[in-house]
Design a protein around this nucleic acid. Structure first.
Lengths: 338, 338
DNA sequence: AGTCTGGATGAAAGCGCTTTCACCAGAAGG
DNA sequence: CCTTCTGGTGAAAGCGCTTTCATCCAGACT
């Protein structure tokens, strides 16, 4: 408890004005005459005044805090989006309160509950799916919500066309002559982003008149280790794939590691493509062909949209960011049929 | 502004008690008789009461919020520590408010200022070094601070013996017969963790009667790309090293990628050791010899220590966590002198 | 001159909670 | 039987700020 802080009333006294005027100097400076404003500012600076956020929140009903609920921070795509969100929000005077739930829908609901209790002014979420309890909390709070990566129709959201991403990666492999294409995704049951990508892969195959044999699709943890395991599983098949699509780059990189550890050459023996375009994907060896997802921009745009909504500014409330294929060295022509 | 929320006074009315009693039911339940407590709880549950955090903070002077200032979230070691911190704090009813500054000391001070204004009850910081302004903010706030990774003597802290980590990695390479050992660290100027590790490397070399030629030490970004560039630089020397220590695993992995891209075999042609022990380090190929740093535990312990301090519980206020060498396949005997 | 506007400021009532202090049994002690 | 506790509860005063409403004073307009 720091009760030795300068209070607004002390600034008022020092500046010879009422507390109301000091308050206005902070939040609505254009209401004051330039001289008064300058006088108040001088007094505030001189005393080192810092408004108390809790008091402001209580009195105004706005906490100037936005909550973000992410699956995990332990993955560059989310931490990057978060970083961008924070930067954007900070510019508008908002603070970000972060919670993560490690891909558990129940924990996500709990995060939402906590953030609501904290009095956030809005919530930024990942994905569209949540348990009924969470949905109810959100709707009864009446707070603005911006969803990212995926969203139900009509809800304010910053999206990525996950299905298109899967489609692009797979079409690229098909174009190189691959016919036996494996896919390793994260758990699709709790992850609509991964599901969308998986759908894209299937669609590309269908376009080419192919179907995806169940054996060639597997789900793994969205980590490098998951990628290795998934790859091992696919390579151990009687008829292993000549190309693999990873649901995220981390999985794809894990694939490459596993394949290389088995003495396979990439892309000569196996082509690997990812989705995300992590920083590191350009630097692994061989560099990873992937579908670029503008992760940081998702964060920026979600933050921008949230602020616009809070300010009642008109504008589109759904935004779909483009994804595009980045061809690097991890994919190549399908080996001639043995 | 959600003014349709249930207020404490409504719960009080429903339960037939005073607001004070409801307040006590929430924060000091043992003061109430079991019957009253049960009655209040029932009323609160029934109405779906959620206390308003801002009002609690204002009235009590405690926000139940801890601020964490990290260099970046975009690095597994920090996001992991953060995740652990959050989990630990949540268990004690605290919330984590995160800020990151991207390795800028000025931005760090700004983060601290913002968090203080938000009324955090304590701060968890990384490293011991900050600009005077930040130090002043901290001391004049009078809030408890826990430092992590590095700290000046006496300050509450959860430490890692960075120098020892550098020492262990280097001794291991010396033990394998390497005499020409390169080191790639992050920028040591603004990063006392990296500086400690670097010191450890030098000390190990001195123990062995060797000195580190300036050409064999370089600083790079703490990323995979930085590792590649540093490695390229060292390998391009007239007399390249036979082994390289990376200041963090990401750099070490970048080294391996670069070396392999140049057709070198690891560890036959070049040994590489890192420090951190990222999850992925066990899964790259070859698996990385590294010094394990208990990253998640740093977060847990820092959180635990913070809560203990806030509760005035006695106990040690500095804790040094052990680091230990993990030998994997990226290091091997020095090649015979050519 | 007299009225009207509107810009600049102040007074004061909260925001929803915590916490001190007072109070009131009834138990314990003299 | 009266005092002294003590555990349980309530009354009420804030916590530091925002915001409505009222006030005041120029200047603009009739």
């Amino acid at each position: 408890m720091v009760r030795n802080r300068i209070r607004l009333s002390e600034v008022a006294r020092a500046a010879g004005v009422s507390p109301a005027t000091v308050s206005r100097a902070i939040s609505q400076p254009d209401l004051l005459s330039p001289e008064t404003l300058a006088r108040v500012r001088r007094a505030a600076d001189h005393l080192g005044y810092r408004p108390d956020a809790a008091a402001r929140a209580l009195a105004s009903g706005r906490s100037m805090t936005i909550g973000a609920v992410m699956p995990t921070l332990d993955n560059a795509i989310f931490s990057k989006a978060l970083q961008a969100m924070q930067a954007q929000l900070a510019g508008d005077g908002y603070q970000l309160l972060v919670a993560s739930h490690d891909y558990s829908k129940a924990a996500e609901a709990e995060c939402i509950r906590t953030l609501l209790a904290r009095g956030v002014d809005g919530l930024i979420l990942v994905g569209a799916e949540r348990i009924a309890e969470a949905a109810q909390l959100l709707s009864q709070s009446g707070l603005p919500v911006v969803m990212t990566w995926c969203a139900p129709d009509g809800a304010p959201s910053v999206l990525v066309d996950n299905e298109h991403a899967g489609l692009l990666a797979t079409r690229h492999l098909l174009g190189l002559g691959h016919r036996r294409i494996g896919v390793i995704t994260g758990a699709t049951r709790f992850n609509d982003r991964q599901r969308g990508r998986y759908r894209g892969v299937r669609r590309a195959l269908e376009e080419a008149g192919l179907t995806l044999p169940p054996a060639l699709a597997c789900e793994q943890a969205t980590t490098l280790a998951g990628g290795r395991m998934g790859c091992a599983q696919l390579l151990d098949l009687a008829e292993p794939p000549t190309a693999i699509v990873g649901g995220i780059d981390l999985i794809a990189i894990g694939c490459m590691v596993e394949a290389q550890a088995r003495g396979l050459a990439i892309p000569a023996d196996l082509s690997v493509a990812g989705i995300d375009d992590l920083d590191m994907s350009a630097h692994v060896s061989p560099s990873l062909t992937t579908v670029h997802v503008p992760t940081a921009r998702i964060g920026t745009e979600a933050a921008r949209m949230m602020v616009a909504i809070l300010r009642d500014e008109p504008g589109p409330t759904t935004l779909t960011l483009p994804v595009d294929l980045i061809v690097r060295r991890s994919t190549g022509p399908a080996p001639a049929r043995g």
